[in-house]
Amino acid sequence: VTTYKLVINGKTLKGETTTKAVDAETAEKAFKQYANDNGVDGVWTYDDATKTFTVTEMV
């Protein structure tokens, strides 16, 4: 189990959260659900070296 981080660069919501998951795919599903629940829709990137997902909403 690995800890993954999500950085949110939203128009109205900004911040970070973490989740523990067995792999990046599982973490991504959890983060996308979290973003969807919070009304964040944007471009996703993932950095495997730092285990960090970033979602950026276009203005």
Score class of each variant (00 low, 15 high):
residue 1 V to I: 09
residue 2 T to K: 07
residue 2 T to P: 06
residue 2 T to D: 09
residue 2 T to H: 15
residue 3 T to N: 07
residue 3 T to M: 11
residue 3 T to A: 06
residue 4 Y to L: 00
residue 4 Y to K: 00
residue 4 Y to I: 01
residue 4 Y to Q: 00
residue 5 K to E: 03
residue 5 K to N: 06
residue 5 K to A: 04
residue 6 L to S: 01
residue 6 L to R: 00
residue 6 L to T: 01
residue 6 L to Q: 00
residue 7 V to A: 04
residue 7 V to D: 03
residue 7 V to S: 04
residue 7 V to R: 07
residue 8 I to P: 01
residue 8 I to D: 01
residue 9 N to F: 14
residue 9 N to S: 10
residue 9 N to G: 03
residue 10 G to E: 03
residue 11 K to E: 08
residue 12 T to R: 07
residue 12 T to H: 15
residue 13 L to D: 05
residue 14 K to S: 09
residue 14 K to V: 09
residue 14 K to Y: 07
residue 15 G to R: 14
residue 16 E to L: 09
residue 16 E to Q: 13
residue 16 E to P: 03
residue 16 E to D: 05
residue 17 T to K: 12
residue 17 T to N: 07
residue 17 T to L: 12
residue 19 T to L: 13
residue 20 K to S: 14
residue 20 K to V: 15
residue 21 A to K: 03
residue 21 A to Y: 04
residue 21 A to H: 03
residue 22 V to S: 12
residue 22 V to I: 14
residue 22 V to A: 11
residue 22 V to Q: 10
residue 23 D to A: 04
residue 23 D to R: 04
residue 24 A to W: 14
residue 24 A to P: 11
residue 24 A to V: 12
residue 24 A to L: 14
residue 24 A to Q: 12
residue 25 E to K: 13
residue 25 E to M: 09
residue 26 T to C: 06
residue 26 T to W: 07
residue 26 T to G: 07
residue 27 A to D: 00
residue 27 A to H: 00
residue 27 A to I: 01
residue 27 A to N: 00
residue 28 E to N: 05
residue 28 E to S: 08
residue 28 E to Y: 15
residue 28 E to V: 08
residue 28 E to K: 15
residue 29 K to Y: 09
residue 29 K to D: 05
residue 29 K to R: 13
residue 29 K to M: 10
residue 29 K to V: 07
residue 31 F to R: 00
residue 32 K to W: 06
residue 32 K to F: 06
residue 33 Q to T: 11
residue 33 Q to Y: 05
residue 34 Y to W: 10
residue 34 Y to K: 03
residue 34 Y to G: 01
residue 34 Y to H: 04
residue 34 Y to Q: 03
residue 34 Y to P: 00
residue 35 A to I: 07
residue 35 A to E: 01
residue 36 N to E: 11
residue 36 N to M: 13
residue 36 N to R: 14
residue 36 N to Q: 09
residue 37 D to H: 10
residue 37 D to M: 11
residue 37 D to F: 08
residue 37 D to W: 07
residue 38 N to H: 14
residue 38 N to P: 01
residue 38 N to C: 10
residue 39 G to A: 07
residue 39 G to W: 05
residue 39 G to V: 03
residue 40 V to M: 06
residue 41 D to A: 13
residue 41 D to T: 15
residue 41 D to I: 14
residue 42 G to H: 02
residue 42 G to I: 02
residue 43 V to I: 11
residue 43 V to P: 03
residue 44 W to L: 03
residue 44 W to G: 00
residue 44 W to H: 01
residue 44 W to V: 02
residue 45 T to N: 09
residue 45 T to W: 06
residue 45 T to L: 07
residue 46 Y to D: 00
residue 46 Y to V: 01
residue 46 Y to T: 01
residue 46 Y to M: 02
residue 47 D to M: 04
residue 48 D to G: 07
residue 48 D to M: 11
residue 48 D to E: 13
residue 48 D to L: 07
residue 48 D to V: 10
residue 49 A to K: 11
residue 49 A to H: 12
residue 49 A to Y: 09
residue 49 A to F: 09
residue 50 T to H: 05
residue 50 T to C: 04
residue 52 T to E: 04
residue 52 T to F: 02
residue 52 T to I: 08
residue 53 F to Q: 00
residue 54 T to I: 06
residue 55 V to C: 06
residue 56 T to H: 08
residue 56 T to W: 09
residue 56 T to C: 05
residue 56 T to E: 09
residue 57 E to V: 07
residue 57 E to R: 03
residue 57 E to C: 05
residue 57 E to N: 05
residue 58 M to F: 14
residue 58 M to G: 11
residue 58 M to A: 13
residue 59 V to A: 12
residue 59 V to P: 10
residue 59 V to E: 14
residue 59 V to M: 13
